[in-house]
Nucleic acid binder design. Structure first.
Lengths: 210, 210
DNA sequence: AACCCTATTTTTGTATACAATACTGCCTAC
DNA sequence: GTAGGCAGTATTGTATACAAAAATAGGGTT
């Protein structure tokens, strides 16, 4: 792993874990020291983080950790719902039986994870990500996948110490099963609508918690 | 204007005008000399061009001018139609009379430009851009606007020496007028559908030419 | 001729020094 | 007391030198 990537990984990590809180200034030299590299790779990393919307620059080229307002989160989820429901529509037309099977396996793993007396959130999150990646992958559009992946990661910044309630987890699973059924049936409109509804639910669940 | 921006502008220009043709390798030092700056700002500019999809890097970190295949263009237009039609839907709910007036002015300018015996393509393109920017602006989503602006610029790479036929120009104007009517009526579905249709037409017109 | 290996060259990655710009706090003028 | 300007400081921008990695070319082996 080269210096740029190291710097990138460290800065990103610290933004996510709150060491660099939203709105705080990121000084190149300071970070360079913290990462044990020079400013050159740090600048590279910062550029990348900018394009990923983790970092913003002021008009005088100072860098700050992006502050996400409530309205920004709504915007992000709105975009996700537009793009992912479109992905689901495309996937419905192109998906293979193999991938449908993988979706079902993922659904079953989620079912297991949330059936326990203390739900296994880690597995839930991992399988949830897998499910969405499979659907987006089945849509077979590299750039669509790219745009979505950008959007998906951002709100995680605020996901520290979330309490997932049982109800919500089960609704999410039931959404996944409906989307799977729609894809298996090759019904693009159904798949798109189910995905849109699923993501909007996720938004409202998240909004309630914050 | 600082060295980074200068380098950025020069490289971009040369990609667009064909001096750096699709698939050609961009060597940092070579470009640095051509721009009269050092490699440092050139690297900055290259990163930016990468995020804007003008440039791609190989797995060994060499940079090349992006080659757009036919299927890529279709993907880009598909994404534009999804995002811009969504923008039109949002705009229908939020647009003000002032902005509708500006749209009508733009439409009239286009009408004038294409009525001449030799259509004024430059004005057409300028007003076309204005129209779409107004609609996207009325949607009031910074990030949606950002994503669309990224997509819009790319196919221009191939737009050198296009012959626009009269028929096409008139159809485009008539689309714009329909979209304007839908927005004025506040009918989100109509506006979205009209925009989608408009962009798909543009795609097929472009595909025919290439 | 096809293949692998190494030496050379090309290209990118990183550190560092210095230049340019923006920010801060203080002082003066009114 | 406030505004404006003028240090001095902090921060980013750029050039350059050298290090690391990758591509290339050539020679030897089969």
């Amino acid at each position: 792993m080269n210096a740029s990537e190291r710097a990138y990984a460290i800065i990103r990590q610290r933004i996510l874990d709150g060491t660099f809180p939203p709105g705080s200034q990121l000084r190149e030299e300071e970070i360079a020291e913290a990462c044990g590299v020079s400013r050159t790779p740090v600048r590279d990393a910062m550029r990348r983080l900018e394009t990923e919307m983790f970092v913003e620059r002021s008009d005088s080229n100072r860098s700050f950790v992006t502050v996400w307002k409530e309205s920004d989160l709504e915007e992000l989820f709105m975009l996700r719902s537009v793009l992912e429901s479109h992905a689901a529509e495309r996937a419905a037309k192109a998906i293979t039986a193999d991938v449908v099977d993988l979706l079902k396996i993922s659904n079953n793993r989620i079912a297991e994870a949330i059936a326990k007396e203390t739900p296994d959130i880690e597995t839930f999150l991992k399988e949830n990500a897998t499910f969405h990646e499979l659907v987006v992958g089945a849509a077979a559009s590299e750039r669509l996948a790219f745009m979505i992946s950008r959007l998906v990661f951002i709100p995680v910044v605020y996901k520290t110490a979330i309490r997932y309630d049982r109800e919500e987890l089960h609704k999410s699973l039931s959404d996944h099963r409906e989307i799977t059924a729609a894809l298996e049936a090759g019904d693009a409109e159904w798949a798109g609508a189910a995905m849109k509804s699923h993501i909007r639910r996720a938004y409202h669940a998240q909004a309630k918690r914050s």
